[in-house]
Every structure is written in C-alpha cells, then in structure tokens.
Computed example of a mutant assay.
Amino acid sequence: MRFHKLDRSKDPNFWSVSVNMDIRLIIHRTDTSLLLCYVDHHDAAYAWASRRRIEQHPKTGAAQLVEIRETVEEIIIQQPIKVPVLVPPKSSLFASVSDDDLLSYGIPPEWLSR
C-alpha cells in the first residue's frame, strides 16, 4: 500500500492509501495514531476528504468528524446605465435670447450647444 498526503483536504492530517488502482482508504494520520475514516473509489474518496476534518470537541475532548459546508453565491455586479443627455433644440421662442442670458436663468450649458 502507498501513502499519499492529500493536498486539497480541509484537514492537513488526511492521507490516502491506495488499495488498488481504483479503491482508496482515507486515513487520519498523526505522530501517535492512524485512524481509518473512509473507503471508496478514487474520486469519491478524495471528494469526501476535501469536505471534512477531524477536530477535538472543546468540552468533551472527544474526536469528532466535521463536515464543512461551503456556500457559493453568485454576485452580479451591475454596471450603471449611461443615459444620453437630450439637448432640447433652441426653439424660435428663445432664439432672440443670448446664451449668456439663458445661463443666467439657470439653463444647463449642455442645452445651449447648437
């Protein structure tokens, strides 16, 4: 059997042991212990190990196998809509009024472009 440390596992102590070309044992390996945690086909065993870790319970001190659940949420970033500025044509009603006077009345400068 061949031991292989799992790189993409949430627990740094998970190792894979090859039983044959397809079957893998997932082992929790520390300096003082080996714990058999899971047995499955290659991809399924690695997927199992990628979502779990072993922790010590803070009150009881017992080992517990914890499944890590991650939520993937798609965030849509909306771009502001650029609305073209409509410049009303200078009608004959204001044809005799100078641009300077129109500005003094509070007309936006963009509206004065002809």
Rank of each mutant, 00 (worst) to 15 (best):
A63D: 09
E67P: 00
V72K: 12
A62M: 07
Q78W: 12
Q79C: 13
P89S: 15
P84F: 04
P89Q: 14
S91L: 14
P88C: 05
Q64E: 14
Q78K: 15
Q56S: 07
A49S: 00
D43P: 01
P84G: 02
A47N: 08
Q79L: 14
P58W: 03
E67R: 09
I77T: 10
L86N: 13
P58R: 01
S96D: 14
V87L: 12
P58T: 00
K82Y: 08
D43V: 02
Y46H: 06
R51T: 10
F94Y: 13
G61C: 04
S98D: 05
V97W: 04
R52T: 00
V66Y: 02
E74V: 11
A62V: 03
L86K: 12
Q64L: 10
V85G: 04
A44Q: 07
S98I: 01
L86I: 15
V85Y: 10
E67G: 03
S96A: 14
I76K: 09
H57V: 00
L65W: 05
S96Y: 09
L93G: 05
E67S: 06
V83D: 09
A44H: 09
P89V: 14
A95C: 09
P88W: 08
R51S: 08
V83Y: 11
S91H: 09
E67Q: 08
V85F: 09
T60E: 06
K90Y: 08
E74T: 14
S92W: 13
V66Q: 01
S96T: 11
A49C: 03
A45P: 00
E70G: 08
Q56G: 01
G61S: 02
Q56F: 07
A49R: 02
V85L: 11
D99V: 03
I76G: 02
S98Y: 05
T71L: 14
D100C: 10
V72T: 15
L86Y: 11
A44Y: 07
E73G: 05
E70R: 07
L86Q: 12
V87C: 12
Q78Y: 10
I75P: 03
I77G: 04
P89W: 10
A47C: 03
A45Q: 00
A95F: 12
R69W: 06
I68S: 00
D101S: 12
E74Q: 14
P58C: 02
E74N: 13
K82C: 11
G61I: 02
I76W: 07
P88N: 08
I75G: 02
I54F: 01
F94C: 08
Q56C: 05
A63Y: 09
Q79I: 10
A49W: 00
A62Q: 05
K90R: 15
V97H: 07
D43T: 06
A62W: 01
I77K: 08
E73D: 12
A45D: 00
